[in-house]
C-alpha cells in the first residue's frame, strides 16, 4: 500500500468515526430510518392484502381448470418507493450535514494546521473525507435497505429474489453516489464561507432548488400531468399520438426537459424508480434493458458527482489553512 493510500484510509477512518459520534447526525439518521420503516410498513400491509387476493384468484383459476393465469400485477420492490423518496429528500439533507460537519469540525478544533503541516495533500484530505462520509452513507443506506426488505418479507409476505436483490443493490448504490454528491456540496459551501453556518444555509438553499423546486417545475410543465390520470390518456391518444402533438411544442418541451435534467435528484429518482419497479412500464423488462433505458440518468448522476468531487478537491486546495490577516 502506498503512503498516499495509507493516509487516505487514515483520514477516511477518522472521518467515519467522528461522524458517527455526532449527535445531530444520529438524530437525522434516526428520522430517516423511522420514516422509511413507517412508509414501507404501511405499503407492505396493503400489499399483503393484494397478494392474498391474487393468490385466491390463482387458486380459483387453477381449481376451475383455466389454462392461462394472468401474471401478478404486483411488484414487491415498488413498496420501497417511499424509502427511495426519503433518501432523495432527507438523505440529501443528511449528506449536506455530513459535509458541513467535516469542515466545521476542523475549524472548531483548529486541527487543519496540524493536518496540513504533515505530508498530506489537499487531494488526499478531500478523498479521505469523502470516503469516510461514503462509509457513513453506506451504513445508513444498508440500514434502511434491511428495514425495507424485512418489512416487505415479513409484513408483505413476499421475500425478494436474487434478481430483485441485484436491482435493489444498484438502486442503493445510486443512492450512495447521490448522497456523496450532496456531501461534496455541503463541504464546499461550508469551506467557502467564513461562517460555517452560512455555508450550511447556502447548501440547503441549493438542495431546496435541486431536490424540490426544479423537479416540481418540470412536473408541472409536463402537459400530460395537467389532468389526473394523464392528459393524453384522457384524449385517447397512444404514444405515437402524444409524440406527434409534442412536435408542435419542441421549444417548450426542451425547456421543460432542461429544467428536469438540471436536477440531480430527478436523475436519481428516475433510476431508483426503474430499479424498484415503481414505474409499471419498466416492470416487464430485464435488468440490461433497464440499464440501457436509464443510461442517461446514470451518466448525469456520475457527471454531477464527479464534478462536485472535483470541486471539493479544488476547494480544499484553495482553502486557507490559516485565516488570512489573522495572528501575525
Amino acid at each position: 500500500m502506498s503512503d498516499s493510500t495509507h493516509r487516505i484510509i487514515t483520514l477516511a477512518r477518522h472521518e467515519y468515526r467522528s461522524a458517527v459520534r455526532s449527535r445531530i447526525l444520529i438524530v437525522l439518521l434516526g428520522i430517516l430510518v423511522t420514516v422509511t420503516a413507517v412508509s414501507v410498513y404501511i405499503a407492505s400491509v396493503d400489499y399483503a392484502s393484494k397478494l392474498a387476493d391474487y393468490q385466491a384468484y390463482v387458486n380459483a383459476a387453477t381449481t376451475s381448470g383455466l389454462d392461462r393465469i394472468a401474471p401478478s400485477p404486483l411488484a414487491a420492490l415498488s413498496l420501497l418507493r417511499g424509502a427511495m423518496e426519503y433518501i432523495e429528500i432527507i438523505g440529501a439533507v443528511i449528506a449536506i450535514a455530513l459535509g458541513y460537519l467535516t469542515v466545521s469540525r476542523e475549524r472548531t478544533n483548529r486541527t487543519l494546521p496540524l493536518i496540513r503541516s504533515r505530508p498530506v495533500t489537499s487531494g488526499e484530505l478531500a478523498t479521505g473525507s469523502l470516503l469516510g462520509a461514503l462509509g457513513v452513507i453506506a451504513t445508513l443506506v444498508a440500514v434502511t435497505a434491511v428495514v425495507g426488505i424485512v418489512c416487505v418479507g415479513t409484513i408483505g409476505h413476499d421475500w425478494i429474489n436474487a434478481t430483485q436483490a441485484l436491482k435493489l443493490f444498484l438502486g442503493y448504490l445510486a443512492a450512495i453516489v447521490y448522497m456523496g454528491a450532496f456531501y461534496c456540496l455541503g463541504a464546499i459551501a461550508t469551506a467557502k464561507s467564513r461562517v460555517a453556518a452560512n455555508g450550511l444555509m447556502i447548501a440547503l438553499g441549493i438542495w431546496l432548488i435541486v431536490v424540490l423546486v426544479l423537479p416540481q417545475i418540470g412536473d408541472t410543465m409536463d402537459a400530460d400531468n395537467q389532468i389526473p390520470g394523464g392528459l393524453f390518456k384522457a384524449l385517447g391518444l397512444g404514444h405515437d399520438g402524444e409524440a406527434q402533438i409534442l412536435t408542435h411544442f419542441t421549444t417548450y418541451e426542451r425547456i421543460r426537459t432542461w429544467t428536469e435534467e438540471a436536477s440531480l435528484a430527478k436523475h436519481f429518482e428516475r433510476f431508483s424508480f426503474a430499479m424498484t419497479d415503481v414505474k409499471e412500464r419498466y416492470r416487464p423488462f430485464n435488468l440490461p434493458w433497464l440499464l440501457g433505458q436509464t443510461r442517461n440518468d446514470i451518466g448525469w448522476l456520475i457527471a454531477y458527482s464527479a464534478a462536485l468531487y472535483a470541486g471539493l478537491r479544488r476547494t480544499f486546495r484553495n482553502q486557507p489553512t490559516i485565516p488570512q490577516g489573522g495572528t501575525q
Binding site: S18, N109, L114, P119, V120, T121
Partner: peptide, 19 residues
C-alpha cells in the same frame, strides 16, 4: 511534502479533537 516530513509543529493554541 519533503518539508512536512522533517518538521513538527505546535500552534499557539492547541485544541485537537476533544471527543
Amino acid at each position: 511534502r519533503d518539508v512536512t516530513r522533517c518538521i513538527g509543529y505546535l500552534p499557539a493554541e492547541v485544541r485537537m479533537y476533544g471527543h
